[in-house]
């Protein structure tokens, strides 16, 4: 993976400290990047050991009784079938599945740029973006944190080239203008803390729409 997620973000994720949007971005990266998965597995071992290490703690017999009583209504679910992406969502790793509509519902924003908003709790705007090859997002800068995970195709901006599984952390106030690579359309998950600010001559007209959440 040429652009891995920073390790401190993997710790935030493994410890359960991330808000829903950023956690989904890291989950998708982890699903696509064996090295990140290994780090998260190691952190899981650490978390398990910290929990296992809790000393002698009082046990509540009544709690066990009430839990056993509840089990009567709770089945043991069969082993889940291996995940298979649904038609139209071939690029979607398993952690994304619960957030996808029955059918792809891409909304055209402007030429060659489409968006699918995902409903997640929390203060982040979480979307899937699709860019036709050679098309770009308008020049913009970021007011808050932004995480991008590429799910299909790739894109290039001033910071480098990003392919499937690559993870980009919003570059702060610097402007950047990603362009989709040739080949398949680029599909990426984008998680934004605050609305982006468009800075190009065309983009400035769109800012009121961005602020209102229209695009």
């Amino acid at each position: 993976m040429s652009h891995p997620a920073p390790e401190e973000l993997l710790l935030d994720y493994a410890a359960g400290a991330l808000a829903a949007g950023p956690a989904l971005a890291v989950a998708l990266h982890v699903a696509l990047d064996p090295a990140a998965r290994r780090t998260v597995e190691r952190l899981g071992v650490l978390g398990g050991a910290l929990m296992e290490g809790e000393g002698e703690v009082p046990f509540d017999e009544a709690l066990l009784e009430s839990t056993l009583a509840r089990l009567d209504g709770v089945g043991v679910e069969p082993k889940p079938a291996p995940y298979v992406p649904r038609p139209g969502f071939e690029w979607a790793p398993a952690p994304l599945a619960p957030y996808l509509a029955a059918q792809p519902n891409w909304k055209r924003v402007f030429g060659g740029f489409e968006e699918m908003r995902l409903g997640l709790p929390g203060e982040h705007r979480v979307s899937l973006l699709r860019l036709e090859p050679g098309r770009g997002l308008p020049m913009h800068r970021h007011a808050g944190e932004e995480f991008t995970v590429v799910l299909q195709g790739g894109y290039t901006d001033s910071t480098g080239n990003y392919g499937v599984g690559d993870f980009a952390v919003g570059p702060g106030p610097e402007q950047h203008e990603p362009i989709a690579d040739p080949g398949e359309p680029c599909v990426a998950l984008i998680v934004i803390e605050k609305p982006i600010v468009l800075t190009g001559p065309f983009g400035r007209f769109l800012n009121p729409l961005v602020r209102r959440g229209v695009i």
């Binding site: 359960g16 989950a27 699903a31 597995e41 071992v45 995940y83 957030y99």
Partner: peptide
Amino acid sequence: EDWLTVFAPEEADADKSVLAGQTY
């Protein structure tokens, strides 16, 4: 949703974890 429980995909993984034997 409990999507965090599926943090690792099910497909065969060349890099399959052998961390399971780790102890406290």
